[in-house]
Structures are given as structure tokens and as C-alpha cells.
């Protein structure tokens, strides 16, 4: 069975966008070509993490449903790489 794609949801709400999501939204163009088929990137109006005190700082990204705070292109790529490793790819 084909392996499930890694689901990446980038918040493009006001707070996240101002604090770095603008960069993150370009993720699709930044990640290596060989990863492209393995990830599914989408944008979300607001992940609703911005209004909580205890979830960390914006920008927020959800990777396979798990919330990541203070996300950057590097930290997201690292996470993708980690997931791929545990799956035994690359």
C-alpha cells in the first residue's frame, strides 16, 4: 500500500503571517524535489493556536496533526526528515 503523505498545514492568519509564515508558505518551492511527492502542503486560515498562552509562539504549523510552534523552514524540514527516517525512506 502506498505510504501516506506527510501532511503539512501552514497557518496564514495575521499573527503567524507577520511572524514568519510568509516564508513558510514558500515551503513547496524550497524543499528538495525528491520530497515533493511525499508531502502534502496546504494553507489554513488560522490554526487557532495564536489565541492560547501555553502553546508557544507563532508561526504555527501542523505536521501530521501535531502542532509545531515558532516554526521555520529549517525546523519544518528537520521534522519532515525525521518522519521520513522513521519510515525507513531516504
Amino acid at each position: 500500500m502506498e505510504e501516506q503523505k506527510i501532511k503539512i498545514e501552514i497557518c496564514c492568519g495575521t499573527a503567524c503571517y507577520m511572524l514568519g509564515a510568509a516564508e513558510l508558505l514558500r515551503l513547496e518551492n524550497i524543499i528538495p524535489d525528491q520530497w515533493k511527492d511525499a508531502v502534502d502542503i496546504s494553507a489554513i486560515p488560522c490554526l487557532e493556536a495564536c489565541s492560547s498562552d501555553n502553546l508557544g509562539g507563532a508561526p504555527f504549523v501542523k505536521i501530521n496533526g501535531e502542532l509545531m510552534s515558532n516554526a521555520s523552514v529549517e525546523s519544518v524540514c528537520e521534522k519532515i526528515f525525521e518522519i521520513m527516517k522513521t519510515r525507513g525512506g531516504h
Binding site: S42, P45, C46, E48
Partner: peptide, 27 residues
């Protein structure tokens, strides 16, 4: 207009927002 507003509409009307990431290049 607004992320939280969109979430409310999504939730209450059981719909989905679709954002075209291809537009990011021109954003």
C-alpha cells in the same frame, strides 16, 4: 476576512476553505 472568522464559518456551515498556494508567489 480573517482566519478566525473563516474558521467559524467553516465550523458552523460545515464547509472547507481552499487556499491556492500557487498564488503565494504573487502574494
Amino acid at each position: 476576512c480573517g482566519g478566525t472568522t473563516a474558521n467559524i464559518v467553516e465550523r458552523e456551515l460545515r464547509t472547507r476553505v481552499e487556499i491556492d498556494l500557487k498564488l503565494v508567489r504573487f502574494s
